[in-house]
Design a protein around this nucleic acid. Structure first.
Lengths: 264, 264
DNA sequence: CGCACACTTGAAGTGCCTCAATAAGTGTGG
DNA sequence: CCACACTTATTGAGGCACTTCAAGTGTGCG
């Protein structure tokens, strides 16, 4: 199932670059393989990404090898707003899956924010969502048990993907390996493994071949002390709106976004 | 030792309110006692604070009593930028010490950002500093040991206060109780106590009667895997600049800021 | 088919927690 | 200035959640 978002300003003016991407006015469609770096510490970033398909992660690496993932970027997220300040990457950002993204020059991006109040609102809101999510991660790492941390992570993912159906069952793609989950939740891969098994045994989740299913969303939320967007400002970003804003200035052909499991 | 920052636009126009505060154009000087709430979850916030003196903390409280502090606000910090989005507080914010702050109406604040590029820069930068600090907290909670967590917290505080002298010795006020430190570092108060003793025994720190001294900043930095602002964009905010911006629009008399131990 | 990587399982260790009690500060009112 | 209440800091003993180390067992892919 596919949806089409965004209107095309000047599709005819769009120019294909050698790698098959389209570039105009500082905005282009970009493709990346899984495990490719979007940024490394010290890199001077000249652009910012609006993720369309695929997942990415930002992480800190200590000199002795310890890794902590500090943010997950999902479709609709801006990656990485931290690059705006000084244009220098401080952390690693890696593609977890293959990725399609709008690559927006920082200059173009700033100009758009300056001129278009709608863009400004979206960006401010995005930044706020990230900050809120990070606070919840702090709570997980500081005060939640292993089961609670994983439960909370899964709740967050399913809500951000927008994949909780009316029956209270949530599903989503789960491209994260157990090592990734460990580096998000501050646990060891071994303990993540045992905790997942415990969660499966107790009928909380199903997880195999990169597919996650939350069997009773309400129950998992309670276990995780999860603040649902039902009672709060929504956790979810707004990909269609963001695409509209930045496609309009790019003259880019309308981008097809993959249908989400949300609709299944 | 006292410094005076900021110029006065219209001191004569400033009007004293019943509590001794001065109000004009949506900006006023505000005083709060230690342990008073600056916000509670659900509160509709009509203003934002620019901290001048004193410390504040933002925290999440789980329904079973577990507490995690998610941010510390020090002099020069804006408290709390999260209130901009929707004007609703999601977390508790409490004064750790007595506080003096510029209370800025949200409307005035937004208008200023809109008109004054300098204000916009300061605010964006402040938000960025907070995000960076939060990432480091994530690393602490997820991947650092108890000693490393406390060492990192102390490094951060001393740098933010701006109190590392040329000799490599850092000092600062330490109004946090061991309970507070526990709720920042995700430990129990008992374990914080034992860890602090260990750090004292090994000659890393001195800490008594609310005064912290880092005896060898370079060594503590290494232990904490601390990213110093020497190699990175500075951790420190810019109180004088911020005061100038917001005092200018307020017609408020120049505010005296307490001399910091940095100068001692 | 075989290599690489993710996942799984077991056994043993430890860093931090829990419970519990005492001591030392700190502020308050008489 | 002391007596009282309350919070903060300290210390001890025992337990558990999570880690570490070390083998395996799938499983996808060229």
């Amino acid at each position: 199932m596919h949806d089409t978002f965004g209107l095309v300003a000047e599709p005819a003016a769009a120019k294909a670059d050698p790698r098959g991407a389209v570039a105009l006015a500082g905005v282009a469609l970009d493709h990346r393989h899984a495990n490719s770096y979007l940024a490394r510490p010290g890199d001077r970033m000249k652009h910012i990404f609006l993720l369309i398909d695929g997942w990415a992660a930002r992480y800190r690496l200590l000199s002795d090898g310890r890794r902590q993932i500090t943010a997950l970027f999902l479709p609709g997220d801006l990656c990485d707003l931290a690059w705006r300040d000084g244009g220098k990457a401080v952390q690693h950002v890696i593609a977890i899956t293959a990725i399609r993204a709008l690559r927006i020059e920082l200059g173009t991006f700033e100009r758009q924010i300056e001129c278009d109040p709608g863009a400004r609102t979206i960006v401010d809101h995005e930044a706020h969502l990230l900050a809120e999510a990070q606070c919840e991660w702090l709570v997980s790492l500081g005060r939640r048990s292993a089961v609670e941390r994983l439960a909370h992570l899964f709740c967050e993912l399913v809500e951000r993907i927008g994949a909780v159906n009316a029956g209270g069952v949530g599903r989503c793609e789960m491209p994260l390996t157990q090592i990734d989950m460990a580096d998000i939740t501050g646990l060891t891969p071994v303990h993540v493994n045992r905790t997942l098994q415990q969660m499966r045994r107790s009928g909380l989740i199903e997880l195999k071949s990169r597919q996650l299913k939350l069997r009773d969303f309400a129950r998992i939320k309670k276990i995780a002390f999860f603040r649902s967007s039902a009672d709060n400002p929504p956790l979810k970003n707004n990909l269609p709106e963001a695409l509209k804003v930045f496609q309009t200035i790019s003259g880019l052909a309308a981008v097809q976004t993959q249908g989400r499991l949300a609709h299944a």
